[in-house]
Simulated scan of single mutants.
Amino acid sequence: MTETPDPASGPGTLWLVGTPIGNLGDLTPRAIEVLAGAELVCCEDTRRTGKLLQHAGIRANRLAVANDHTEYHRISDVLDVLGSGGDVAVVTDAGMPGVSDPGERLVRAAIDAGHSVSAVPGPDAVTTALVISGLPTDRFAFEGFLPRSGRDRSARLLGLAEESRTVVLYEAPHRIERTLADLAETCGGDRRVAVCRELTKLYEEVVRGTLDTIEIGEPRGEYVIVLGGAVVDDTPPDDDTIRAALRDELASGSSKRDAIAAVSKRLNLPKKQVYALAITE
């Protein structure tokens, strides 16, 4: 088994450090070790991270803001520290950096410059919500925050309507009701869903049901939506369905050859099977 880098020795490493999503007791000893030894700690909010460090008994060497607006401009500082052999720790307000939070651009810049990048695993809202949702966990997709409006939002919602895997989404309190309504309209009210809030905190709450029956009460706090996958009909199409599809293709002007190819692809059937029915039409 390959050993992970030691934060106390070797060349500078960029560390992605998972921090608590609510309960400060979830900060791991290894995270404390890396944060204490880092020459630079990049964070979204110095006040919030400062409180976390104070709770852990850490006096940071240097704190710098790397949020959605400043991450790109922080790259040169990070590379300077790494280039001089110092470690840089990246944290976000909660959870794992780079997952719907800043960090991805710093990682790419460090890798491109030839520096070591590693992570201290920690709490994250994605898997926490997933495993307590009661929905299938063997295959899932993470969508983060949906676009707020327009064509991009509509396209993502349509994609979710056809997604057979469990889907995890983030949402803000002032948009949660609208997003649940949009999901019900696009995906159907019978889709199973779990809505989680205040994860790992004293008033943690998980509401489970279907999109057309779920009641979340007054919106408060940040939300994680876990949406059940669409039910996939694995029943193979019968001959009448195949013939109807062929007639539709032919009526639209396709040649018999093109119609066979199109129906075979659409219904995921062997061309020989479709051809045998086409010649009897």
Rank of each mutant, 00 (worst) to 15 (best):
G12I: 09
F140L: 10
R139M: 06
S9W: 05
V81Y: 08
K256N: 15
A244S: 12
V232M: 11
T19K: 08
S164P: 02
G37W: 09
A119I: 13
L16R: 11
A251V: 01
L250M: 10
R47W: 06
E215D: 13
D190M: 14
G12E: 08
H55K: 15
H55C: 04
L135V: 14
P20M: 07
V207K: 03
T200I: 01
R74Q: 07
L16F: 15
I260M: 10
A66P: 10
V88W: 02
R139N: 12
P237D: 08
A278K: 14
D234K: 08
R62Y: 07
N268M: 00
G85A: 02
L52N: 10
R165Q: 09
E218F: 13
C187L: 04
V195P: 04
L180C: 11
I176Y: 01
V99E: 12
L40Q: 02
A129H: 10
N67C: 12
L183P: 00
T70A: 01
A161D: 07
I242T: 03
H174C: 03
G98L: 08
A36P: 10
L246V: 05
V226G: 05
R148V: 08
F142L: 09
R243H: 08
V81N: 07
E171Q: 05
A125H: 06
C187K: 01
C43L: 14
L16T: 03
L82G: 02
A94C: 09
E104V: 15
R266Y: 07
R148F: 03
A8F: 11
E215W: 01
A230P: 00
A110C: 14
L267F: 13
I214P: 00
L158I: 12
I214Y: 04
L27V: 15
G221A: 02
G83S: 09
A172L: 04
A110W: 04
T241R: 05
F142H: 02
G50N: 06
S149T: 00
L169V: 09
D138F: 08
